[in-house]
Nucleic acid binder design. Structure first.
Length: 344
DNA sequence: GATATTTGACCTTG
DNA sequence: CAAGGTCAAATATC
């Protein structure tokens, strides 16, 4: 167990260092007349590294959770995460179970509200293809299933589920699964006709393909972190936004420019433009299948709600200890941890 | 004709 | 066995 943990820690550190190095490269790149493609490539690498790091953290969380507490609940978790799709590293952390949950996945949930009279959820920058719809027993509205349009051509396994909110029919709960391996910046964002022009007027949820100008849309993200009990899995989009913006936006004109497009949000939770999934902190359930789903709250939290069992605390290391200089590391650990009430 | 959506059937999981 | 998730044939749209 110790060795496993040590391995995870090493892997995490490696990913963070990798992300930092690529960030440096990007920084250098910005001072040169470099191509947008190469910058995008570097950016993707950075995001990938951070994703993997988060995956590792979450895997650790789940392992811890599975060994500690279970809080049975009659309600399924709003956020449930299986395992990570991000890299073989995380795969290596998986144990067992041939259940469906073993399918590498992570999920996150955002609430999208359309204002200004625009119909349907906004376009999130990716190109989705609907592959199913299902009436959910306890839900008033059916759930629609989408997968990345580039699943076939690029093997992108990202999927999402869209369900109209019962409390607010103008809102949609969107659960993302898997990260895009297609390049949104190159392909999907130049939305193919499939998304933009083939929209059919009928029927509830799936009309979310309708793609009005993103400028005309605002996205209200479910304040998942509003729950009093938080763990790592409780980071919200807004947290992540904060995180990401603190990482690079303020200092990087390139990324700042991206933020002004569909890629990144610089808005607050009060009026968020959509933050694409790649930039969100994902809610991980990590490797372990929780036999007992938590309450809704705990479900959202995803990981267990005990600070003592919270993985981020178990994961006892500091950037300094591995020779990472805060000033170089845009991923402000203190800032990150400060997102969690008990982490002071 | 190519591509997207619909929808009933089937599969997997708990 | 029930419910959620996915498949795939039929259908619609461009």
């Amino acid at each position: 167990m110790e060795s496993e943990k040590s391995w995870e820690q090493d892997a995490l550190i490696n990913e963070l260092i990798e992300g930092m190095e690529v960030a440096r490269k990007l920084k250098e790149d910005l001072s040169l007349p470099s191509s947008v493609d190469s910058r995008n490539s570097l950016l993707q690498k950075i995001l990938s590294s951070y994703d993997k790091a988060l995956v590792i953290l979450k895997c650790n969380a789940s392992i811890s959770n599975s060994q500690t507490i279970h809080q049975p609940s009659p309600h399924p978790p709003l956020l449930s995460v299986q395992t990570s799709p991000l890299g073989e590293e995380a795969e290596g952390l998986k144990h067992n179970s041939k259940k469906r949950k073993m399918t590498p996945k992570w999920t996150e949930q955002v609430r999208v509200t359309i204002e200004n009279g625009v119909e349907g959820p906004l376009h999130d920058g990716y190109s989705w293809r609907k592959y199913g719809q299902k009436d959910i027993l306890s839900a008033k509205y059916p759930r629609s299933y989408y997968r990345c349009t580039f699943r076939k051509t690029k093997g992108c396994c990202a999927t999402k589920q869209v369900q109209r909110s019962e409390e607010d029919p103008n809102a949609f709960d969107i659960t993302y699964r898997g990260s895009h391996t297609c390049c949104k910046g190159n392909d999907a964002v130049v939305t193919p006709k499939s998304e933009d022009t083939k929209e059919k007027p009928h029927n509830n949820v799936e009309s979310h393909h309708a793609k009005p100008s993103q400028d005309s849309l605002t996205v209200k993200t479910e304040n998942i972190t509003a729950h009093p009990l938080t763990s790592f899995g409780c980071m919200t989009q807004d947290n992540h936004h904060t995180l990401f913006s603190s990482m690079v936006l303020e200092n990087d004109p390139f990324l700042r420019s991206l933020s002004q497009t569909s890629l990144l949000s610089t808005n607050t939770a009060e009026s968020n433009y959509f933050v694409p999934p790649s930039f969100l902190v994902h809610e991980f359930d990590g490797v372990c299948n929780k036999p007992c789903p938590d309450s809704d709250v705990a479900g959202i939290v995803s990981a267990d709600t005990s600070a003592t069992n919270s993985p981020i605390f178990d994961f006892n290391f500091s950037l300094h200890s591995v020779g990472i200089d805060d000033s170089y590391f845009p991923f402000n650990a203190c800032g990150l941890l400060s997102q969690f009430p008990k982490c002071t």
